[in-house]
Amino acid sequence: MAEKVEIPVQKWSGRVREVTLGATKEEGGTRTRSVTVGGEATLPFLHFEGELPHPPRIAIEIQDKKPEEWSPLLLKAWEEVIDDPAAWAKKAEERGADLILLRLSLDDAQGEENTPEKAKSTVRRVLAATGLPLLIFGPGQVDKDNELLVAVAEEAAGERVVLGVCEEKNYRTIVAAALAHGHLVDSRTPMDVNLAKQLIILIHDMGLPLDRILMDPSTGALGYGIEYGYSVMERLRLAALHGDTMTQQPILVTPGEEAWRAKEAKVEEGIPEAWGDWEERAIMWETMTATALIEAGADVMVMRHPESVRLVKEAIDKLWVKEG
């Protein structure tokens, strides 16, 4: 009485766009290789159902100066290179990064204001130190972001850098800079399907082709709102597969930044015994935030600790086994 089991296979009408980060010499830049993400024709890792041309990729986040407010564990992990973004980028590449995310600060190491000239020189040095594609995020203050990102966009002309972050209140200048110099942008909205779509539309309306936009729906860390980010990502990916064209962008999320802000990752003393070993727990906090998000559809994950990066890459490799 053996029953034939008919495996349900969903027919999806849409698929995610492919977006290529970085440009090699032949493509007009200087990267040793470019990285393409997106292109999914089904849900994460369900190879049996549709084409999944590119695995999720990890960007390691570095800063233009020692990030004093970071967890001591992160400062320790990058100790020898933390004062030098070029050396840091190189080290990050050695530790398995697919991409480098450079975050610019408001001030330099001497406490003096960051300027377009200084930012350009940092970018020049980082580009020379690593062959990986670059993402460059501003300090997160509207005026300063605009000032610095416009300058670095010019400096990195032709490199297909991702400029970020574009938010509703501040995207025009950044998008214009990307348009002028052949770059991409990160479109960030606060955990809402419709807001994510709207900002993609606004950016596209300025003339930036859709294959130059990453969609960043925001996330919370494990224990601090990850469930909202997780579900918004699943909904966005389902909308994309159902053919909603303005949601068909590869997804970028920042589990590193979120997880390392949590007390569980930051603090060593005065915490409950049940939290266990600090370093192990902290690394797992970032790792599990990230692995939950790749199951929800993340294409690019920005992370901070080299050991979390190693663990997440291992998980991706194991999920990436294609069946016959």
């Binding site: 494990l222 224990g223 469930e227």
Partner: peptide, 20 residues
């Protein structure tokens, strides 16, 4: 079984099973 791994795992379970 190790508290440093158990705590994140239990938190993840709580988050995923929270009523949205």
């Amino acid at each position: 079984f190790d508290p440093a791994l158990a705590y994140p795992l239990l938190t993840l379970r709580q988050n995923i099973y929270t009523d949205p």
